[in-house]
Simulated assay, not measured.
Amino acid sequence: MTQTFPPFGNPAVAATYESFPPPLREGLLTVRKLIFATAAETPGVGTLEETLKWGQPAYLTPETKSGSTIRLGLPKQGGFALYAHCQTTIIPDFRSLFPDAFHYEGNRAVHFKEGAALPLDPLRLLVRSALTYHLK
């Protein structure tokens, strides 16, 4: 696997990323890096835990319990997705800010097409919202 930042601390997570098709893996690794960078620059988040939930890479805030779990995966429709807990307002709040800029799956996910440019600034808002959800 190519060098990633931050390095994987969990071999099972690393193996899961390695199993993703290369074009989708690149997009998922970009979102992973954004999650870690956003956590590092956001007060109150603390250290992230990177683990697997339902076989998907998942990001939690166990130190501060500031956030709701973020998962990354491959939806059946193709492409890749960022998932938030469906009983939170994370995705609906984001959709109210960017109603037509993304493809949404109800209250649970934002989908991305393979090879499409990722709008990192809006995604940073989504990630920050999830990582600080319990601080509201």
Rank of each mutant, 00 (worst) to 15 (best):
T2Y: 11
Q3Y: 10
Q3W: 06
Q3P: 07
T4S: 10
P6I: 13
P6A: 12
P7C: 14
P7M: 14
P7W: 13
F8V: 05
F8I: 04
G9L: 15
G9D: 15
G9N: 15
N10C: 05
N10E: 10
N10S: 07
P11I: 14
A12E: 14
A12K: 15
A14D: 10
A15H: 10
A15F: 07
T16K: 15
T16F: 05
Y17E: 05
Y17P: 06
F20P: 06
P21W: 10
P21G: 08
P22W: 14
L24G: 12
L24S: 13
R25F: 04
R25W: 04
R25L: 08
R25M: 05
E26I: 11
L28A: 07
L29V: 13
L29T: 13
T30Q: 09
T30I: 02
V31K: 00
R32M: 06
R32G: 00
K33E: 14
K33V: 09
I35D: 03
I35Y: 03
A37W: 05
A37T: 12
T38D: 04
T38V: 02
A40I: 05
A40E: 12
E41F: 03
E41N: 09
E41R: 15
T42V: 02
P43D: 13
P43W: 09
G44C: 12
G44Y: 08
V45H: 09
V45Q: 10
G46T: 00
G46F: 01
T47Q: 11
T47S: 07
L48E: 06
E49T: 04
E50W: 03
E50M: 00
E50Q: 00
L52P: 03
K53F: 09
K53T: 09
G55K: 04
G55E: 00
Q56E: 15
Q56A: 13
Q56C: 09
P57V: 02
P57R: 01
P57K: 00
A58N: 12
L60N: 07
L60F: 01
L60I: 07
L60A: 07
T61R: 01
P62S: 06
P62N: 02
P62K: 08
T64S: 00
T64E: 04
K65D: 05
K65Q: 07
S66C: 01
G67L: 09
G67A: 09
S68D: 07
T69G: 05
I70L: 09
I70V: 12
R71I: 12
R71L: 13
L74W: 00
L74V: 05
P75A: 08
P75L: 08
K76R: 13
Q77V: 13
G78E: 12
G79W: 10
F80K: 11
F80N: 08
A81N: 04
A81H: 03
A81R: 05
L82F: 02
L82S: 03
A84K: 06
H85F: 03
H85D: 05
H85W: 02
